[in-house]
Design a protein around this nucleic acid. Structure first.
Length: 460
RNA sequence: GGCCUGGUGGCAGAGUGGUCAUGCAGCGGCCUGCAAAGCCGUGAACGCCGGUUCGAUUCCGACCCAGGCCUCCA
């Protein structure tokens, strides 16, 4: 099955073939760790994590890197505000990031390069760019000379002239050309800095990705991913630096960009303040429903983040886990991914289509009569779910979610359910219904089955 | 202002030049002490105006609307 991906470079879907079968490289722009991330920041890691799993099935030699940017002016500011060293900031929020991603079912990347661990590579890249005339030093800064790279603007489809025409940025006096951007900048004594040929300083804000990609993968990587809002200037500048530092060799063969998460039709962003932190959202909703919500639209489309969306996802998972619960008596293990799911994912990571395929499998499984079919379809459901990072928990855990931390506790729920069952058997339906109502008020729903009653946490 | 996306049924959301998305919700039925779950059945859509076509939601053009980038941003 061929894998087709929308390449932002060409603006069309292209068949993906790695440059080397024995080493396939994928890089995702990771977080700058100066604060807790919001749920919008999780969309890329979630969908590109699905891509990493997909790629690994096709190319076991995949190496997937997602960086941590741990040197940045916002980090410096946070450290100053809190009177702590920057490592206290970056350590805390790196750890929080890992925890929150894990909660959302995001796999760890194979490599998690840190910018501060690549300062020598960053300096070396700056030197190389200066030697080849693509960069220049000025007043303790090193700047990239945009005019020296003919294809600048190719990814984001904009020309330097256009940008200068609409520029709202004040042009620093040491820049030769207004579009030039900083590779290295001087640090005052109180700021973190490293010794360099241009004095004590720190990297600019694009060079670290170029340096880390080079360190991990060499001149040209297969796939580079990130949010659409990074396309310009971040990715454009990465391309310029890397291509010029590598004698004109391409930087990334495929560029993938995820769409933004919206709140009331507007992009969720820290600067607008319309954000939900992941830890806040996790406190109110099942993590798996959040993950499903992030995959409910195609990754390139904008996605409106609402309570209604999450509740719908909870119900969808109720349905899937209900099917799995009804299949509890047959054995099944995760195996090869069902063709309908795999082909949807191979079609530019069409997760809504994959979810529709999963629904079809679930419907078939519910109707299957014999053990062999039920086992086969259960395996298909679990395997298709695995491809998406869904449906891997025990159905009982899903349906009992949160009862220990928040509500009555499973033991007292069990006791009430048993009491109702006794009332039912005594044909005291008034008493039985009163207990059912009492539980319903606590968000617990009872289902009677031929095997006896069972309960679940109700969708809101 | 420049560049770029997108507008699909009650909601979410794929997709396609010519019977079907799918999920959630709704409605009718079966089942149930009553419910829930499940099953069966069911209505409902392609922003607007033109063009191409035997036929367009799908292709082309204009328009309207929404959003993104141009400044930190996933």
């Amino acid at each position: 099955m061929s894998l087709n991906l929308f390449n932002s470079l060409s603006r069309r879907v292209e068949r993906f073939e790695p440059q080397h079968q024995d080493r396939v490289s994928m890089y995702v722009c990771g977080p700058t760790v100066y604060n807790y991330v919001h749920i919008g920041n999780a969309r890329g890691p979630v969908v590109f994590g699905v891509l990493a799993r997909l790629l690994r099935r096709h190319y076991p030699a995949l190496v997937y890197a997602r960086n941590i940017t741990d040197v940045d002016d916002k980090i410096n500011q946070a450290a100053i505000d809190q009177h702590v060293p920057i490592s206290a900031i970056t350590g805390k929020f790196t750890e929080a990031y890992r925890t929150h991603m894990a909660a959302l079912g995001v796999d760890l990347p194979d490599l998690e390069p840190h910018a501060t661990a690549h300062i020598p590579q960053i300096i070396a890249m700056c030197e190389r760019l200066i030697e080849t005339g693509h960069a220049y030093a000025a007043e303790g800064h090193v700047l990239f000379a945009v005019d020296t790279y003919r294809d600048y603007g190719q990814l984001s489809r904009r020309s330097t002239d256009e940008m200068l025409a609409g520029a709202r940025v004040e042009v620093a006096p040491y820049k030769r050309s207004a579009g030039d951007f900083v590779l290295w900048k001087p640090s005052t004594p109180e700021l973190p800095g490293w010794d360099s040929p241009w004095g004590r300083g720190r990297p600019g804000w694009h060079i670290e990705c170029s340096a880390m990609c080079e360190a991990a993968f060499g001149d040209t990587i297969d796939i580079h991913c990130g949010g659409i809002d990074l396309q310009f200037p971040h990715h454009e500048n990465e391309i310029a630096q890397s291509v010029c530092a590598h004698g004109g060799k391409p930087f990334a063969r495929f560029w993938l960009h995820n769409g933004m998460l919206n709140m009331d039709g507007r992009k969720m962003s820290k600067s607008l303040g319309n954000i939900f932190r992941i830890d806040e959202v996790l406190a109110h909703h099942p993590a798996e429903a959040l993950r499903l919500a992030l995959m409910s639209a195609h990754y390139r489309q904008p996605l409106d983040w609402t309570d209604g969306l999450i509740e719908q996802c909870v119900r969808t998972l109720d349905r899937f886990y209900g099917t799995l619960r009804d299949l509890a008596d047959v054995d099944a293990t995760v195996g090869s991914i069902p063709a309908s799911v795999e082909s949807a994912l191979c079609d530019d990571l069409n997760t809504p289509q994959a979810l529709a395929a999963l629904s079809a499998i679930a419907a078939e499984a519910r109707k299957a009569a014999n053990t062999a079919d039920r086992s086969r379809l259960k395996a298909a459901l679990l395997s298709g779910g695995f491809a998406l990072g869904l449906l891997q928990q025990n159905p009982a855990e899903w349906f009992a979610r949160g009862t220990e931390s928040g509500g009555l506790g499973a033991a007292s729920i069990d006791a009430l359910v048993a009491e109702r069952q006794n009332a039912k058997q005594a044909r005291d339906f008034a008493r039985a219904d009163a207990i059912r109502k009492q539980l319903a008020e606590q968000g617990i729903e009872i289902e009677d089955t031929p095997q006896g009653p069972r309960w679940k946490v109700a969708a809101k």
